[in-house]
Simulated scan of single mutants.
Amino acid sequence: MAKKESVPTRAAADALAVLGSQIRLARHERNWTAANLGARIGVTARTVTTIERGSPGVAVGTVFSAAAVVGLQLFGTDNEGLARLRRRGEERVALIPSREYAPRRGEDDDGLDF
C-alpha cells in the first residue's frame, strides 16, 4: 500500500519552504554536506535534501532536529526560551478538560408549548 500524500495548506507549504531554505543556508555556512547533517540527526543525506526542499512528507521532529542542529532559533527564541514556552504550554494544556462533551439539548417535549 502506498503512503498517503499529505497536501499542506498554502501557509504550511510556505513555512516549510522558508524553514528548508534556512536549514540549507545554515548548513552551508558550517561547510557541512547533507550527509554530515544527516549523520548528526540520524537520517540519510536524501532526507536532508528533502527537508531543504520543503517537502511535507518528512516528520516534523526530524525537521526541527535539523533546524536545531544547524543553530536556527525555533519560534524566535533560544533553547532556554523554548523550554519556557514548552512549560507554559504544558501548564495551559493541563487546564483543558480531559474530555469534551457536546452540550445537552433540552428535554424533548414533543413540540408542546406549555
Rank of each mutant, 00 (worst) to 15 (best):
M1W: 03
A2I: 08
S6D: 10
V7I: 13
P8H: 09
P8A: 13
T9S: 13
R10H: 04
A12Q: 14
A12S: 10
A12V: 09
A13N: 02
A13W: 05
D14E: 13
D14F: 09
A15H: 09
L16S: 05
V18Q: 11
V18D: 11
L19N: 04
L19E: 05
G20D: 08
G20M: 09
Q22D: 15
R24P: 00
L25V: 14
L25Q: 15
A26N: 12
A26H: 14
H28T: 12
R30C: 02
N31Y: 04
N31E: 09
A34T: 14
A34D: 15
A35G: 02
A35T: 08
N36E: 04
L37Q: 09
G38F: 04
G38Q: 09
G38S: 06
R40E: 06
G42P: 00
G42N: 00
V43N: 00
V43C: 02
V43Q: 03
T44S: 15
T44H: 07
R46M: 12
T47M: 13
V48Q: 02
T50K: 14
I51R: 08
I51A: 13
E52V: 15
E52K: 12
R53S: 05
G54S: 08
S55R: 01
S55W: 05
P56F: 13
V58H: 06
V58E: 01
V58A: 02
V60G: 08
T62D: 01
V63W: 04
V63D: 03
S65C: 00
A66S: 02
A67H: 01
A67V: 03
A67C: 02
A68Y: 00
G71D: 07
G71N: 02
Q73H: 03
Q73K: 03
Q73P: 00
L74D: 03
G76K: 02
T77L: 01
D78W: 02
N79P: 01
E80F: 13
G81S: 01
L82K: 10
R84E: 10
R84N: 02
R84P: 01
R84M: 09
L85K: 15
L85I: 12
L85E: 11
R86Q: 11
R86F: 07
R86D: 08
R87Y: 07
R87P: 00
R87M: 07
G89N: 07
E90Q: 09
E91M: 10
E91R: 11
E91V: 09
R92G: 11
R92A: 15
A94P: 00
L95T: 14
L95K: 14
I96A: 15
I96D: 10
S98F: 11
S98L: 13
R99V: 08
R99N: 03
R99H: 11
E100C: 01
E100G: 07
Y101H: 06
P103D: 14
R104G: 00
R105K: 08
R105S: 10
G106M: 13
E107M: 11
E107R: 12
D108T: 03
D109M: 12
D110K: 08
D110L: 14
L112H: 09
L112T: 07
L112K: 11
D113Q: 10
F114R: 06
